[in-house]
Simulated scan of single mutants.
Amino acid sequence: MNAQPKPVAELGFNTATKGVYPIAATPFNPDQSVDWDSLDRLTDFYEASGATGITILGILGEAGKLDPEESREIAARVIRRTRLPIVVGVSNPSFTAMGRLAKESMDLGAAGVMIAGHAALRSDEQIAAHFRSAVDAIGPDTPWALQDYPLTLSVVLSVPMIARIMTEHPSCVMLKAEDWPQLEKLSTIRSWQKDGKMPAFSILTANGGLFLDFEPERGSDGAMTGYAFPDALVEMDALHRRGERDAAHDLFDAHLPMIRMEQQAGVGLAVRKYLLMRRGAIACDIQRKPGTALTAQGRSEIDYLLERLARKDARARL
């Protein structure tokens, strides 16, 4: 399976990247196999939502439950399906595996890759050494996003540590910011950049969009998150960029109960997949084992929230 690499000018993944990059789920069939038809449909769904690009094989994409051939095939299929820039999650304790998936993805036409640390990293020196080895593995010319997600990954990246990584590795063009609390950290990073203490880079925020009401005012360039209404995230981002603050907050307030529902520990992915299924983006909301499933009452509560959201946003009329 060969994909034609996309022209560099079309990739749109660099230190000036702005917009919304949904984190893609990975659809599965009831027998736990990858649902390739739903993957195509989901890719079309993200593109139709107005997304700037798509990020695949992240935590939400259940990347850790895929074998290497499945990961490569998913990357190839999504890259072939859309002209949007694709960022591929390649995080792996094995630098050999990380480097192989990064090279294969870039050869297929990916715009860049995303890398996180892992729970065994404790000191700043361990963190710095990890990312030096990661850049050696993917190659110094491969653009990448640094994932800052201490709530799940247990890797604490202070602002000085982020500055060190960004300074040592010019190929790191983006920070995927999902620390919590996030707002003050965003302001500090932008202040450091203004003072010349760290280089310029794009910042896309995550946490399911939970703080998207204020993040643009603190310096974010957009969102890279998995909320099942990426079209609403695109609209919120556009409203902020046009200076329509109240309209952006009104739209955010309408979606906040559903965003909160998705952020539940343990069942958040089940909620997202159920919503994606209800929206027609995937055929089945199953997760690959081990995974959680919603109870009948949980689904009923989401359906109720959809009905309420539909009074203010027609996208929820399913």
Rank of each mutant, 00 (worst) to 15 (best):
A3V: 13
A3M: 11
Q4M: 14
Q4A: 13
P5T: 08
P5L: 01
P5H: 04
P5F: 00
P5K: 00
P5E: 07
K6L: 05
K6Q: 06
K6C: 04
K6Y: 03
P7M: 02
P7G: 05
P7H: 03
P7E: 10
P7V: 04
P7K: 00
P7I: 03
V8D: 10
A9N: 07
A9G: 08
A9W: 08
E10I: 03
E10K: 06
E10G: 10
L11H: 05
L11Q: 13
L11K: 11
G12H: 10
G12M: 04
G12T: 09
G12P: 01
F13G: 00
F13R: 04
F13S: 00
N14A: 03
N14V: 00
N14Y: 01
T15Y: 12
T15R: 13
T15K: 13
T15L: 06
T15A: 15
T15F: 08
A16Y: 06
A16T: 10
A16L: 04
A16P: 03
A16S: 11
T17D: 00
T17H: 00
T17R: 02
T17I: 00
T17A: 01
T17V: 00
T17N: 01
T17C: 01
G19Q: 06
G19K: 02
G19H: 00
V20L: 07
V20Q: 02
V20W: 02
Y21A: 00
Y21V: 02
Y21P: 03
Y21R: 02
Y21K: 01
Y21W: 12
P22K: 04
P22L: 09
P22T: 13
P22D: 14
P22N: 12
P22E: 13
P22M: 11
P22Q: 11
P22S: 10
P22W: 12
I23Y: 14
I23T: 15
A24G: 07
A24C: 08
A24S: 14
A24Y: 07
A24N: 07
A25V: 15
A25D: 13
A25M: 15
A25G: 13
A25F: 14
A25N: 14
T26Q: 09
T26D: 12
P27S: 09
P27F: 01
P27K: 02
F28D: 01
F28M: 04
F28T: 05
F28S: 05
N29K: 12
N29T: 11
N29G: 06
N29Q: 12
N29R: 11
P30I: 11
P30Q: 10
P30D: 11
D31I: 04
D31N: 15
D31E: 11
D31V: 04
D31F: 05
D31M: 06
Q32Y: 10
S33Q: 15
S33L: 09
S33P: 13
S33M: 12
S33K: 14
S33N: 14
S33R: 14
V34W: 13
V34Y: 13
V34G: 09
D35I: 10
D35T: 11
D35W: 07
W36R: 05
W36S: 05
W36D: 11
W36T: 08
W36Q: 09
W36L: 02
W36I: 04
D37K: 14
D37Y: 14
S38H: 05
S38T: 07
S38C: 04
S38E: 07
L39S: 08
L39W: 10
L39D: 12
L39T: 13
L39F: 08
L39A: 07
L39I: 07
L39R: 11
D40K: 09
D40Y: 03
D40R: 09
